[in-house]
């Protein structure tokens, strides 16, 4: 075999970075091209929604509940210093619904769902199962990628709403123990300062996070190389990159939501 002369435009690292960005862009645009064209694998979307949504419920319940309790416990002393402990439910409502619910859900799903998608598709890639689908005239992108990304985009917002609900319950447990407040008063106060934009931006964030987790997991898995080592690498990169993008998206969406709120 012959080895050709060096053909890099800048250097190997720079060329690889731009090539990876272009590949990720092509992968994402391919998703939008294929997601809205028949055949639609509804059965597989439901199956993946079950895998992503229902199987994450336990973890989200425990985490959401603990976040609610801890955040309430940490916030109380500061508010008491200013004699504003009656504002605690409102503060918790804003913090959990606007930020903590979607963010905690997204980070848990990036770890659990993103790594699982990356590893599953990665192992399918390196053991030629994806090629096997292709030679059987089955579009593996449509069957494996489109279904998982849609399921993730649908399930993360639902889990986020659920996480916010459980977080508020956790918070109520703490507030009730300390101040003997009723559930009705707690919820009335918690939601009194929330606006439509808060709920809408929270849902929008969760949709974006769900899409990010699905597409990054699939991209890394679908492009895995180097055997079993590549599978581990794909799963790891899926988690790291998803989390990084989630924080980046959080900053952007918060800025946009604030801009709309002040408009």
């Amino acid at each position: 075999m012959e080895v050709k002369a060096n053909k890099y435009i800048f250097s190997k690292g720079v060329d690889t970075f731009f090539s990876d960005v272009y590949k990720a862009y092509s992968f994402t645009t391919r998703f939008f091209k294929e997601a809205f064209v028949a055949p639609f694998h509804f059965k597989e979307i439901i199956h993946q929604s079950f895998e992503i949504g229902l199987k994450s419920l336990g973890l989200i319940t425990v985490t959401g509940f603990i976040v609610g309790i801890v955040f309430t416990k940490q916030s109380r002393p500061s508010l008491e210093d200013f004699g504003a402990s009656s504002w605690l439910p409102s503060l918790i409502g804003i913090a959990i619904v606007r930020a903590l619910g979607p963010l905690v859900t997204a980070l848990i799903c990036a770890g659990k769902v993103g790594s699982s998608i990356g590893a599953e598709l990665g192992s399918m890639k390196v053991t030629e199962q994806i090629d096997a689908m292709e030679v059987s005239a089955i579009n593996p992108f449509k069957y494996l990628v489109v279904t998982r990304v849609i399921a993730s985009t649908l399930m993360v917002p639902l889990l986020s709403l659920y996480c916010s609900f459980v977080g508020l319950i956790g918070s109520y447990v703490n507030v009730h123990a300390e101040e003997n407040t009723t559930l009705a008063i707690f919820y009335k106060n918690a939601f009194s300062t929330l606006t439509f934009i808060d709920i809408f931006s929270s849902l929008a964030k969760a949709i974006v996070y769900g899409f990010t987790i699905g597409i990054i997991g699939c991209y890394k898995g679908f492009n895995a190389t180097q055997g079993t080592r590549g599978v581990g690498k794909a799963a790891n990169q899926a988690v790291v990159l998803s989390m990084f993008l989630i924080f980046l998206e959080e900053v952007i969406i918060v800025q946009v939501a604030n801009w709309i709120r002040n408009f």
Binding site: S123, M124, T127, E128, Q129, D131, A132, V135
Partner: peptide
């Protein structure tokens, strides 16, 4: 028909 080296059965 394509028979793969690794068999490529869906796990």
């Amino acid at each position: 028909g394509f028979s793969f080296q690794s068999s490529a059965l869906y796990d």
